[in-house]
Design a binder for these strands. Structure first.
Length: 290
DNA sequence: ACACATTATCTGTACTAAGC
DNA sequence: GCTTAGTACAGATAATGTGT
C-alpha cells in the first residue's frame, strides 16, 4: 500500500471541498501538477483515474489522494451516475511517498513521554493514497459539515472549525492504515510501555513486567527495542528523568528529593543517570532553565 | 484435500554488560 | 563481586501459502 508520509508541524492545511457528480459516460478531468493534494471519495457509482503508472478504481466508500506534482487522467468512463466528494489541501512541511510493506518505524516518533519542555516534537502522519474507508458514513458527515460552513468561510472562527474538521478527516484516513492495527510486537511494546508509565516510580523487574504484560521478558525487551529504540529499563529511566526535569523546573525541591520523587533511591545514582541522559547535572539543569 | 514449505510469533539458553 | 538485564542465537509452534 502506498502511503503519504507528512512530517508535522506544520499541520496540513484545508483549502476547499465540494461534491460533484459525473454522468454515465463521464470521466474525471485530466490535470497536471495542480500544486495541491486532491482527495476524492466516491459515495455512489464508480470512477477510474490514473496517476502516472498507478491506476485507481474508486468505488463507493473508497478514497484516493492525487499528488500535487503528478499528471492525473481518467482511465475509463463512468459506467453509471457517480457521486464524489472532493477536497483540496496543502502540505506545508516535508512529505514523501512510502511503501507500507517496507516502511521503517519513524525514528523521530518516540513515546510522547520524552517530549522536551520547550521544543515542538516533530512527528509523522501516514495516510494511505488509496484505501477503503473504515467508517464511510462518518467521513461523509465530515464533508457535509464542511459544506455547511462554506458560506461563512470568510469568518476566522469558521475557518478554524474547517481546519479542525479536516484534521479529523485526516485522522480517519490514517486509521485505515496498519499503524492503527498494531502488529503483535507493537502491541506488546505498547502494553509494556503503558505499564512502565503507570509504575515508573517503582522498581519494576523484567520478570514482573513480563507477568503483567503476559509475555516473556526477552520478547518484551526485543519488542521495545524495535518500537522505541531502547530497552524497558532504559525506557523507565528516561521516564524518570523526564519527570525529574519537570520537578526541577516547577518546584524548589532539593535535587536529592527530586530523584527520590521519581524513583531513585540513591541521589548519587540519580545525578549520574541524569547527567548521562541530559549531558548536564540536575543542579546545572535547574540553574540554566529556571 | 493433503503434504510440505515458508513465515511469523514467541520462548529458552548462554554469554556479556551494567547496576548497585 | 553479586545480581539482574540485555542481546544473540537456536528452536518450538501455529498460521499461511503453494504445489500436486
Amino acid at each position: 500500500m502506498a502511503l503519504i508520509e507528512m512530517t508535522v508541524p506544520p499541520l496540513p492545511h484545508y483549502i476547499t471541498s465540494g461534491f460533484s457528480t459525473l454522468p454515465k459516460g463521464g470521466h474525471h478531468p485530466s490535470r497536471n501538477n495542480i500544486q495541491v493534494f486532491d482527495l476524492l471519495i466516491t459515495t455512489y457509482g464508480c470512477f477510474y483515474i490514473g496517476e502516472e503508472d498507478a491506476r485507481f478504481e474508486v468505488a463507493p466508500g473508497q478514497a484516493v489522494i492525487l499528488r500535487p506534482d503528478r499528471y492525473h487522467f481518467a482511465t475509463q468512463s463512468c459506467a453509471e451516475l457517480t457521486g464524489t466528494y472532493w477536497m483540496h489541501f496543502h502540505v506545508g512541511g516535508p512529505w514523501s511517498m512510502i511503501d507500507n510493506a517496507i516502511a521503517p518505524i519513524p525514528l523521530e516518533d518516540p513515546s510522547p513521554v520524552f517530549v522536551e519542555p520547550f521544543a515542538a516534537q516533530p512527528f509523522t502522519i501516514r495516510i494511505p493514497q488509496y484505501t477503503p474507508l473504515l467508517q464511510p458514513e462518518k467521513t461523509y458527515d465530515l464533508f457535509e459539515q464542511l459544506h455547511q460552513l462554506q458560506p461563512r468561510a470568510h469568518v476566522s472562527s469558521v475557518r478554524f472549525a474547517q481546519q479542525q474538521l479536516f484534521h479529523e478527516l485526516l485522522r480517519q484516513l490514517a486509521a485505515s492504515t496498519d499503524s492503527e492495527h498494531p502488529s503483535p510486537a507493537t502491541a506488546c511494546a505498547e502494553k509494556a510501555a503503558s505499564y512502565l508509565r503507570q509504575h515508573y516510580r517503582e522498581a519494576v523487574s523484567a520478570k514482573e513486567l513480563g507477568d503483567h504484560v503476559n509475555f516473556h521478558p526477552v520478547y518484551i525487551a526485543r519488542c521495545m527495542q524495535k518500537e522505541y529504540g531502547c530497552s524497558p529499563t532504559e525506557y523507565q529511566l528516561r521516564l524518570r528523568i523526564q519527570q525529574a526535569k519537570l520537578l526541577l523546573l516547577q518546584t524548589d525541591l532539593p535535587v536529592a528529593h527530586v530523584g527520590e520523587q521519581v524513583g531513585f533511591e540513591q541521589p548519587a545514582y540519580f545525578a549520574t543517570c541524569f547527567t548521562r541522559i541530559e549531558g548536564i547535572s540536575p543542579r546545572k539543569y535547574r540553574q540554566r532553565f529556571s
